[in-house]
Simulated assay, not measured.
Amino acid sequence: MVALLDKAHLQSSTGNPAAAGASLERALRIEPRNPVLWSELAKARLDQGRYRQAINLAAKSNSLARGKEKLRTKNWRIIGRARNKLGDYKGAEAAFKRAEQGR
């Protein structure tokens, strides 16, 4: 699983979020309850312009990330950015506020 996550990071950093997403999906088949993987997939989908999916994946990560406030903050920022891109400015503002509050 770690190798797939590393591969996804490399793919993302070289401008290939679709390949990163595929690697993360494989990793999630191995560890489906890993909130970090869900968050990384949400980021890959955000980078691909798949905003609604990014929101759903970040929310899934948050549901699994109890006690992991940094990860939840990251997820709320992903949700905020995706909502902003969708034109949901009030929703984006609410997400960014939750990120600031760390919940």
Results as ranks from 00 to 15, higher is better:
residue 57 L to R: 04
residue 46 L to V: 05
residue 8 A to H: 08
residue 6 D to E: 15
residue 91 G to Q: 03
residue 25 E to M: 08
residue 76 W to G: 02
residue 70 K to H: 06
residue 94 A to K: 12
residue 70 K to P: 00
residue 93 E to T: 13
residue 98 R to H: 14
residue 80 G to K: 03
residue 14 T to Y: 11
residue 6 D to W: 11
residue 5 L to A: 12
residue 41 L to E: 04
residue 48 Q to A: 11
residue 87 G to F: 14
residue 97 K to R: 15
residue 18 A to E: 14
residue 88 D to V: 07
residue 4 L to G: 02
residue 94 A to R: 11
residue 16 N to T: 00
residue 16 N to M: 00
residue 49 G to A: 11
residue 32 P to R: 12
residue 38 W to Q: 05
residue 85 K to C: 09
residue 56 N to K: 13
residue 33 R to G: 00
residue 52 R to V: 06
residue 37 L to H: 05
residue 77 R to P: 02
residue 5 L to R: 10
residue 100 E to I: 12
residue 88 D to F: 10
residue 99 A to P: 08
residue 9 H to E: 15
residue 46 L to Y: 07
residue 59 A to D: 08
residue 58 A to L: 04
residue 38 W to F: 08
residue 72 R to E: 01
residue 47 D to Y: 11
residue 75 N to Q: 02
residue 88 D to G: 08
residue 57 L to M: 09
residue 56 N to F: 04
residue 21 G to V: 06
residue 56 N to Q: 13
residue 44 A to F: 06
residue 81 R to S: 07
residue 85 K to H: 11
residue 80 G to Q: 01
residue 79 I to K: 01
residue 101 Q to C: 07
residue 103 R to W: 09
residue 60 K to M: 06
residue 25 E to A: 13
residue 60 K to W: 02
residue 61 S to I: 03
residue 27 A to K: 01
residue 51 Y to A: 05
residue 91 G to T: 05
residue 47 D to R: 14
residue 13 S to H: 14
residue 53 Q to A: 02
residue 42 A to K: 03
residue 82 A to K: 03
residue 33 R to E: 10
residue 100 E to K: 15
residue 92 A to I: 03
residue 27 A to S: 08
residue 56 N to A: 14
residue 52 R to H: 07
residue 18 A to Y: 12
residue 16 N to E: 00
residue 4 L to Y: 09
residue 4 L to C: 05
residue 55 I to W: 02
residue 15 G to S: 05
residue 7 K to T: 11
residue 89 Y to K: 15
residue 9 H to S: 15
residue 28 L to V: 05
residue 53 Q to P: 03
residue 86 L to A: 07
residue 45 R to D: 04
residue 45 R to M: 07
residue 33 R to L: 11
residue 59 A to V: 09
residue 70 K to N: 11
residue 67 G to P: 04
residue 65 A to P: 00
residue 79 I to Y: 04
residue 93 E to R: 15
residue 86 L to R: 06
residue 22 A to C: 11
residue 2 V to Y: 06
residue 24 L to F: 13
residue 52 R to W: 01
residue 99 A to F: 09
residue 99 A to M: 07
residue 76 W to E: 01
residue 99 A to Q: 04
residue 30 I to D: 10
residue 57 L to A: 06
residue 54 A to I: 05
residue 55 I to G: 03
residue 95 A to R: 04
residue 3 A to E: 15
residue 82 A to S: 14
residue 8 A to I: 09
residue 82 A to L: 08
residue 21 G to M: 08
residue 70 K to Y: 05
residue 46 L to S: 05
residue 60 K to V: 02
residue 33 R to N: 12
residue 66 R to T: 12
residue 102 G to T: 07
residue 25 E to V: 09
residue 77 R to W: 04
residue 50 R to F: 09
residue 41 L to G: 01
residue 31 E to F: 05
residue 23 S to T: 10
residue 91 G to D: 03
residue 14 T to F: 12
residue 64 L to N: 03
residue 66 R to W: 11
residue 42 A to F: 01
residue 43 K to W: 09
residue 25 E to Y: 02
